[in-house]
């Protein structure tokens, strides 16, 4: 769990570093970033309602603020926003948002607004990387920081899978099927990327995904 949270945090740091140091967001999908902001905002609605630990609250806060920051850079920063590949980043996000919402309205643990939005965020997160993966495939010579970002972001849910197996074995009554199945799907979506990422890493080459 800790390793998963840390790779998630590092993925965001890597992305912010890339944008800030190179003053460029080329190869980064604004659509994926906006989906992630939607995921964080709908999942962490309970930030001021239920307190679990200082760690949890801080991480929630960091995730919301940092994804807002990245979007701000890509949309408003006068240098960075010029480098956004808008004409390549054309994934129709409505095809991810609406099905996730409808599924959350039907398959959830409790019929309440908070619960449906939380479930929606779980479903949406599992597919939120798709615009980014499509953009990567269209970009020739993906830069290292961008590919590292996607690798770290993909590893995070993979590490959570291990955490869930461990908790399932050690905690009585620990079951969360919605989160598990979504997490499995989320990690499976990265499989192809992981394969090419590790291949290019072994050969010491820049990543380029076959189209």
């Amino acid at each position: 769990r800790e390793a998963g949270d840390m790779t998630h945090l590092f993925s965001i740091i890597v992305l912010l570093l890339k944008i800030n140091a190179t003053k460029s967001c080329s190869g980064v999908s604004l659509k994926t970033q906006e989906l992630y902001l939607l995921v964080f905002v709908t999942r962490y609605l309970d930030l001021f309602q239920s307190y679990i630990s200082l760690y949890n609250s801080c991480m929630k806060f960091i995730f919301i603020v940092s994804s807002g920051c990245i979007i701000g850079y890509m949309r408003k920063h006068k240098v960075v926003s010029q480098t956004y590949d808008a004409e390549q980043d054309t994934f129709r996000v409505a095809f991810l948002v609406w099905p996730s919402f409808l599924l959350a309205a039907v398959i959830n643990q409790k019929l309440s607004v908070m619960e449906i939005l939380w479930t929606f965020s779980i479903y949406l997160e599992s597919v939120a990387i798709l615009p980014q993966l499509v953009l990567l495939q269209r970009t020739k010579n993906v830069d290292n920081l961008t590919s590292n970002y996607v690798f770290l972001l993909g590893s995070y849910r993979g590490l959570y899978l291990l955490n869930w197996i461990y908790r399932c074995l050690t905690e009585e009554g620990y079951r969360q099927w919605i989160v598990w199945i979504s997490g499995l799907l989320q990690t499976a979506i990265y499989c192809d990327f992981f394969y090419y990422y590790l291949k290019s890493w072994r050969k010491n080459e820049r990543l380029s995904l076959p189209s």
Binding site: S50, I52, N56, Q109, G173, R175, Q176, V179
Partner: peptide, 10 residues
């Protein structure tokens, strides 16, 4: 139905 697992993960 089983009680909901507390949302203690991120």
């Amino acid at each position: 139905t089983a009680p909901a697992t507390p949302k203690d993960e991120l």
